[in-house]
Nucleic acid binder design. Sequence first.
DNA 1: TTGTATGCGTTATCAC
DNA 2: GTGATAACGCATACAA
Lengths: 344, 344
Amino acid sequence: MKKAPTIRDVAATAGVSVSVVSRVLNPDSGPVAPAKRQDVLRVIDELGYRPRAAARELSAGHALTIGLVVTDLSNPFFARLADRIVWEARSHGVQVVLMTTQEDPHLEADSLDTLLDRSVSGVIATPTGGNIEKWARLQDLGVNVVFVDRTIEELADVDVVSIENFDSARRSTEYLIGLGHTRIALVTGPRQTSTGRARINGYRAAHEEASLAVDPLLIRDVPFRGDSGGDAVGSLLAMPQPPTALIVANTAQVQSSVRRLVQVGIRIPDELSVIVFDDNPWTELMSPPLSVIRQPLDMLAVHSLELVLGRMQGKLPDGPRFIEVKADFLARNSCAPLAQTAIH
Amino acid sequence: MKKAPTIRDVAATAGVSVSVVSRVLNPDSGPVAPAKRQDVLRVIDELGYRPRAAARELSAGHALTIGLVVTDLSNPFFARLADRIVWEARSHGVQVVLMTTQEDPHLEADSLDTLLDRSVSGVIATPTGGNIEKWARLQDLGVNVVFVDRTIEELADVDVVSIENFDSARRSTEYLIGLGHTRIALVTGPRQTSTGRARINGYRAAHEEASLAVDPLLIRDVPFRGDSGGDAVGSLLAMPQPPTALIVANTAQVQSSVRRLVQVGIRIPDELSVIVFDDNPWTELMSPPLSVIRQPLDMLAVHSLELVLGRMQGKLPDGPRFIEVKADFLARNSCAPLAQTAIH
DNA sequence: TTGTATGCGTTATCAC
DNA sequence: GTGATAACGCATACAA
């Protein structure tokens, strides 16, 4: 177990001073004679020298690193988001430290502290909704914060990237109304979240548009964690006058919801039309293939990274940005006109 | 945008020297009077002081960080593995920097360099198979390396955690043979990988045991990336004498393989019995629910983390460890006796 | 028990 | 063009 060479080793064996080596390492930091540059580069290669990140960061005051704070990587939505972000970040030479919160504000608080210790220059996060002061403090310390998928409205000055929640919910609802459904159930995220509210509003808007009353009992805002989606589905199906259509707009609860549907053996779309918010490949493999609102998480990833990096390089105008990306509705075979819907 | 307080700020406002502060920060590094300790702790809290990681690492010579190198987070197997590892690591106070390789040795090489720069004290990885010297160098520099799921046999002295590949393949094959099948196809990973070979051997062993000849054309070792699984399935189904059973033992290719099966509309298990290596929840949601070899990635995660941490704390005996965890076979409804299998 | 001084590896400032 | 040298923030050996 030998120890890694330092800039001094390079300087010594190349017969120059550390300043010269540093300058070839950071090309724009000063002049260096072409001949010496070659020498130094050769030695660097020979010795396998690599500058230590810790030293750089200490000197620079901040790290070429961003924090990625998601709730849970076992949710394919976040997993794929993370995948794209890591990938995109790499191509810009920035590392990603990953933290998960399990939707728990305490764990989130922990993560934010740690990120601060690391002096990351940016954070991409799906906030739990708590820790307002902590997020503010982070920003105050010069960390660029970008929220993705959700947001915290109390927090000014933070960039946000999300899908068109209102519109997506409205379109799905319209589609089902167009099929003749009047009792459409909605399983969505907590009302405390921006996402949850926007989707409920979209659902409502579609009803108003069609002069349809909405039965509040058909709207279930459930937590992101646990089996809440499945439970909601169970309870909806047990209603005296059950819904003939269902929209699962809580991405984290799609799997649990669908599992319940499969378990109770309800026939889709004959007995129930179904639309889910997801972009999971397996929705296509079911029978019938599920109609989905496909979340373009490539776009989410690209935009959020663009934002942090842009901020880091100071090449973005002041003032928070709000980017909404369109989510496509993909009709497959899980929805049918009400006419052919059996009576329960 | 104010700047974060340093240890000096704390020392000053607490009316002590930096060493005292440092000692309360690192309890076992020296004595400090109870009264002063309280003072310092109070000031730390008031100022919201947190030690900077970069400075600590520079001083210590290494970081309380591990690198996690996986091929691809859009593969749920790795996503969930990552989730568990991050979770487990957090509870031990170590951060995780995440990198993906896309199965590309070049990207992997890049990642290893970066990890070196960061002076991580440990790496958990799913190696691509290349970069032998680089892995060796990493170890030589004192980085604890743990391979998970796969391994590189040329590399001595590295800890490995994997599932019982040979046994899992053998049991699946035996199960199908027991059902009367004699033409069992196997889609697995590249023969260059330890995993791929072990699974082929297991498959072979089951055949020998039953005095059954193996048709080499039924064994398809395909890459981890791309649609190779689907293509293999297509080609298998097009054989003059197609298989009556299929084992997809390449976790990364399960989705593409199953998609193909769904596309061609083959009836499972009537026309084809199917077993896949996976632990993905959606396998249960299909009709019929797929029989699977369930990879206990909780165990993989826990063990690999235990190994790196154990090495980091020097509390593990010398010499490489090889941990194999059992994978359960879960019979669902995608396999049927040959008797009821239709003639193609 | 406490404080002072030095080093960790780099970058940046400034003389030369 | 180049080379000392002082930060950067923390830990630590050593002196007090």
